[in-house]
Structure formats: structure tokens, C-alpha cells
Design a protein around this nucleic acid. Sequence first.
DNA 1: TCAATGATGATACGCATGTATCACATTTCG
DNA 2: CGAAATGTGATACATGCGTATCATCATTGA
Lengths: 206, 206
Amino acid sequence: MRIIIDVPKRVDHEQRRRQIGEALLRIASTRGLQSATMREVAAEAGVSLRLVQYYFHTKEALLLAALAYLGEQLTERVSASIRALGPVTPRTVVYGTLTAVLPTDDESVRLTRAYTGFYTLVFSEPEMGERHGATYPDKLESLLARHIAAAQDAGEVAADVDPPLTAAALVALTNGLGSSVLGGQRNGAAALRILEDQLGRLFRAP
Amino acid sequence: MRIIIDVPKRVDHEQRRRQIGEALLRIASTRGLQSATMREVAAEAGVSLRLVQYYFHTKEALLLAALAYLGEQLTERVSASIRALGPVTPRTVVYGTLTAVLPTDDESVRLTRAYTGFYTLVFSEPEMGERHGATYPDKLESLLARHIAAAQDAGEVAADVDPPLTAAALVALTNGLGSSVLGGQRNGAAALRILEDQLGRLFRAP
DNA sequence: TCAATGATGATACGCATGTATCACATTTCG
DNA sequence: CGAAATGTGATACATGCGTATCATCATTGA
């Protein structure tokens, strides 16, 4: 019996899948995820409907793949935002992380719009959430909790704050602010002011 | 020319409309607003599809009416929650308001689910938001800002907090926590702990 | 009493969607 | 080489949706 590693012969499957997945994200960022029909995605990606079906047997597979791509982009943006703040300290990590996911510029608006689309999709199709695994907010919370605890040790944060509880509050606050921006209740700058007010209150030696 | 006040002859229109609108809210609370199709609403209300069309010429009219009913229920729950906390003080108003809209029990879960459905609907159909007028979070924020300022005058809240900024943060925090509960990230009790931690930090004489 | 109007039922229409099918071209490899 | 596998196109199918149409019965007012 021979072992055959059946590498795709003609085209790079992963590249095609990415091309199509990115097209879906583009639609989700502009017209909303509910407009991301198979036909619309095909048109946006510049391929035929058949090809979308070919590379993603079902729509759920397409959504899952696009969600993974979105996760990569979010992670990359958070990293870049932290790096841009100079030396890595607990404070810059917390600031950089939260401001990165707040919809303040074009890129973050796109990412937040797409992410919100997926998040609300899980409300109606909980199976998708299960198939996707650990949620992004969870990862954010544990990251922030660690750095808040570190800041506490350094005396930058009051000793009586509970890091996990506070990290959860910050993530929820940021998500809520993001929703209010997408909903047109306020703009990104106003949301940023609110977030920075809270962060300034937290990172203040007692 | 005679003026004819054409009161409905056979049935009470407002009652029928309410019956149908409540059916939609029930569906939105359980299966999600995207499952609230005209036919499903008709079945849930125990009437024929034709009747839903008759009392609401279009689906948007039905959604708008149901949203108004939901607003009434939310307002009623907030009032009841404040009353239940005993004497009306700035602190009880803030506590009562925010804990009322956090999905901690059956009723608040239902209300939050339905409200979230409408909120996310506005993401895709911004016209509906415009036709609906002032958003619920806006009203909550100004209410809370007033009471935070009052608490400040009474010395229950530190003098350096900005009431509007803080009120906005609290509402966003509560919305974010609500989303995390509906998304299955944590349960209502955990969300309540996070909210109370923040509130306890705010209402603390300096 | 009887025509007009209010209320309700049954059913059809047009459209969009996810998915499936059939056909054909191109490449690969024994 | 030539058959099998891979890649792509065109189109069909079944379903669910909001809405529209036609018909029927009950009530009302002159």
C-alpha cells in the first residue's frame, strides 16, 4: 500500500479559499453578514458560484473559515497596536489591546462590523459557536487579567481591584462601546474618550 | 360634510395588534428575531397569515409596533426594579436600572434577547432605527448621568468622576455583559458580580 | 331590508437562497 | 497514450419568504 500525499495539482486550494473567505469578510464589513450569500460572495471574489461551492462544500464551512481569517486579522491588529505604543508594559498592553478592538478608524470599523456579524450569528445558530471553539473575548480577558495583576504588583493599579473581574468589565465595556458606535449612537472618538476615562481611573497609583 | 369617527366595528384593533406583536416578541425571545417570519408570528399568535397582514400592512410596521411594546416592557421592568430597592436614592436608581436590564432571570433574558435582536437588526437596516426615534441606551445614559451627579453632590461618588462619561460607560458595560451572557460566555450571576464590582467602586465615598 | 363596509380565509406570485446535477475542460500519472 | 482525477461552468431544484389577489361572511347604518 502506497501513501499518497495528494497535494492539489493545478491551483493552490488554500489561496483560493482565502480569496473567497476574504470576499465574505469584505461583504460582512460593508453590507452585513446577512448579505453574504453564496452568490454575493462569489461575485465579490470574482469567481463563479460553483467555485464557492467547490472550495467550501457548505455555507457553514465558508463561514467558519472566514471567521478564522477574521480572528487572525484581529490578533494581528492587536499585536501591532501594542507594538506601536512603544515599550511593552502592562499598561501599554491593556491600552493597546482595548483601543485596537474599538471601532475608531477604517480598519477597526471593518473588523468590528464583521466580528459583530459573527457574534450575532451565534445567537441564532449556537452550533456554529460550538464548532468554533474558544471565543475571542475569553482570550482577551485572560490576557488583560494577567497584565492588570502585573500592573498591580508594580503599584500602578490599586491593590483592591480584582484582576479577572476588572478585565471582564473592560472587555465588556469595549464591546458595548463598539456596539454603540456601530449602532450610530456615537462616533469612535467619543467611545475612545469613555474608554480612556475608565482606563485612566484604573491605572492610577493610589 | 359629516365627520365620522370610524371606530372599529367588530374587534378591538389595538388588542389584536398587541396580541400579534407580543407573539413576535415571544418568538424573538426564544428562536431569535430572524425566525420571526410573518407565518411564524401568525401561528404563534393563533391567527391566520392574512390577519397579520391585515393588522400590519407590512412587516416593518409589525416590527416597529413590537419594538414599541418591548420598550414599554423594558421601562416597566426598570421602574419595578427601582421600586423594589426601597427608598429612591441616586444609588438605588443606578443599581436598579442597570441590574434590571442585565439578563439574570427569565424575564430579563427574554427582554434582552428580544432587544438584542432589534438592535442587531438596525445594523443591517439602518432605516428602521431612524424611524424608531431616540434609542433606549440614550435615555438610560441621561437618566444615570443625572443620578450620578446627584450622588456626587451627596458625597457618595468621588468628585472627579465625569457623570455623562461614567453613565455612558456603565450602560456600555451592561450591554456588553448582556451580550456575553446571551452568547453563552458566562451566566447572569457572573455578569452581575462584574457589574456590582464596578458599581461598588463607583459608589464609594473618597 | 339591503347595500356598504369590516373582518377573515385560501391561495397564488415573484423572488432569493442553499444545494444539487450535468457537462466539459485540463492536468496528471501508471 | 489514455484513463482517472481535478477544476470550472451553466443551470435546475426545493424551500421559504413578503406580499398580493380573490372570495366569503358578518355587521352596520340609512
